[in-house]
């Protein structure tokens, strides 16, 4: 295994799938000649040429819809949004077209495509550029929502998403692009819909996705020092959710904290904690706690931004409360 970055892992997945399947192409703003705003598509124009790696005008609704049509016509588009903040402009094509095309056409048309790009909070870019939208898309039947938290998962999950026959919302995290990790070489696929136990523990289950998985692991280290042995689970696929892995863990630990960067109201944590309550109620020794972003648009000032985001300390504190150790 080689040590590579999260962005290189995503690049490998796209290259691997484009080599395998002639129908796959990459389209988005600055993906070709600039090698990607965040350099995820580095070298892909050179490798695959302008027929398959295509720079667009700044016209998100247009090229998202173009992707939908191309998918319906038999291609396998990978549509990059520079960030998911800009995908809001394309929401109609994603939600009204891609997500329900198969259903509305009685199964005549498929929409096998990936919408991908950076999501979540970046650093100091204020309210319009620092937002988590996974709960929006996870609410929509017809979509799959995938979020990798480390380089290996980034490669395996993106490759699987491109091979998948449905529309996949693939949300990367800008703050993770430079993270380095061991990534299997060659063809590598991680099946969608499978959570991963990132740390085994017996006292409490921490459930976190994307960048928050790293935070949960740091919190687990801190909790270990305080005598609390935390298990960390990364759902990896948000929709559909591998609740069996979560429920099995909670049956063992009897306690859980769900962590997400996004807003609490109607967030991913709301769904996961509701499922634990519905299906694992008898296993619980304490109410499930949530650690989330504060209920505010993201501010620019460094101190306010820091305060708005979830922190490792908040996760530790929540876990202590759930373990009756606060």
């Amino acid at each position: 295994m080689a040590k590579i970055t999260y962005r290189e892992a995503l690049n490998q997945a796209m290259c691997q799938e484009m080599e395998r399947d002639e129908r796959v192409f990459l389209m988005g703003e600055e993906v070709a000649e600039y090698n990607g705003a965040y350099k995820v598509s580095q070298g892909m124009l050179d490798k695959f040429g302008p027929r398959r790696v295509i720079d667009t005008p700044i016209t998100e609704l247009g090229f998202a819809g173009l992707g939908v049509g191309a998918a319906m016509a038999g291609l396998r588009p990978v549509i990059e949004f520079m960030t998911w903040n800009f995908a809001i402009l394309a929401a109609d094509q994603i939600v009204n077209a891609a997500a329900k095309m198969k259903y509305m056409t009685g199964g005549q048309y498929d929409c096998p495509m990936v919408f991908r790009g950076a999501g979540g909070a970046a650093a100091r870019v204020s309210s319009q550029h620092s937002q988590a939208f996974e709960n929006w898309y996870a609410n929509i039947p017809g979509l799959k929502v995938v979020m990798p938290s480390n380089p290996a998962d980034a490669k395996g999950l993106l490759a699987a998403s491109i091979r998948d026959n449905d529309t996949v919302i693939f949300i990367e995290n800008e703050m993770n692009y430079g993270d380095i990790g061991e990534v299997p070489e060659g063809d590598y696929i991680i099946p969608l819909g499978k959570a991963d136990i990132k740390r085994v523990g017996k006292d409490i289950t921490l459930i976190a996705h994307s960048r928050m998985t790293g935070y949960a692991l740091l919190a687990a280290d801190e909790l270990a020092k305080q005598g609390i042995d935390a298990e960390v689970i990364d759902p990896r696929t948000i929709r559909p959710l591998d609740e069996a892995t979560i429920l099995t863990s909670v049956a063992k630990t009897n306690r859980a904290v769900v962590i997400e960067e996004g807003w609490r109201f109607a967030g991913i944590g709301a769904e996961i904690s509701a499922r634990i309550m519905e299906k694992g109620f008898d296993d619980l020794d304490a109410p499930v706690a949530r650690v989330t972003g504060k209920d505010v648009p993201m501010p620019y000032a460094a101190n306010l931004e820091n305060y708005a985001l979830p922190s490792v300390a908040e996760i530790v504190e929540a876990a202590r409360v759930v373990c009756n150790r606060a």
Binding site: R124, V125, S126, S127, H129, P299, Y300, A301, A302, N303
Partner: peptide, 19 residues
């Protein structure tokens, strides 16, 4: 002050360069 994220910024430090 806005660029620096300070209290006396044009929007109180909430927006920064872009806002």
């Amino acid at each position: 002050a806005e660029l620096l994220g300070r209290a006396g910024g044009v929007v109180g430090g909430k927006g920064g360069s872009m806002h």
